[in-house]
């Protein structure tokens, strides 16, 4: 067992873990942050995407011990402290970017990361960026619309500290 200390959604966490434990298992099993989902065994589906030091990362591709000393943000830490949805979360709701909700946490985080890197991506760039996140429900229609909507309405902004401004219908 190895002792690790990391920050998860702004809170310091210390855990004793097996070296083979995946970050996603640490989050789900040890920390009960079940918003991060497991949809495959092969790092294809992206349902487990979280932020690690501000960059989106499939948490099934990373060992928990690799997260030692790092900052992890899961879907539970995306909305503002007062519960206001992050603009990307609000955009997903506005544009019907989710149905069953299983891929949604990963989609939201990956989409926020895209807008952090590129303020106004083209439709093509959005679709290519989301290559690592699979959705079986929406046909991606509402998801791509949501990213466009968010970009057009002030961008992604900071996570965990969203502005009070609600995303409005375009």
């Amino acid at each position: 067992m190895t002792s690790i200390t990391l920050r998860v959604n702004g809170k310091q966490v210390t855990a004793s873990v097996e070296p083979r434990l995946l970050l996603v298992e640490l989050l789900r099993e040890n920390l009960h942050l079940t918003g991060t989902h497991v949809g495959c065994d092969t790092s294809q589906c992206g349902a487990c995407t979280v932020f690690v030091d501000g960059a989106s990362m499939k948490s099934c591709t990373m060992l928990a011990v690799e997260a030692d000393g790092r900052e992890v943000t899961t879907i539970e830490g995306i909305a503002a402290k007062d519960g206001t949805l992050h603009p990307m979360q609000a955009a997903f709701k506005e544009c019907h970017g989710l149905q069953c909700g299983f891929c949604t946490p990963g989609m939201v985080i990956s989409s926020i990361d895209l807008l952090k890197r590129k303020k106004d991506p083209s439709e093509h760039e959005i679709r290519e960026w989301l290559e690592g996140n699979i959705c079986r429900c929406t046909g991606y229609h509402g998801i791509v619309k949501a990213v466009q909507h968010c970009a057009k309405n002030g961008g992604a902004g900071a996570v965990g500290d969203a502005t009070k401004k609600e995303s409005t219908n375009a």
Binding site: H37, C100, G101, F102, T104
Partner: peptide, 11 residues
């Protein structure tokens, strides 16, 4: 949507 967008869904 609220619960699914905030990781509060219970699968």
């Amino acid at each position: 949507d609220q619960r699914f967008l905030t990781g509060k869904g219970q699968y």
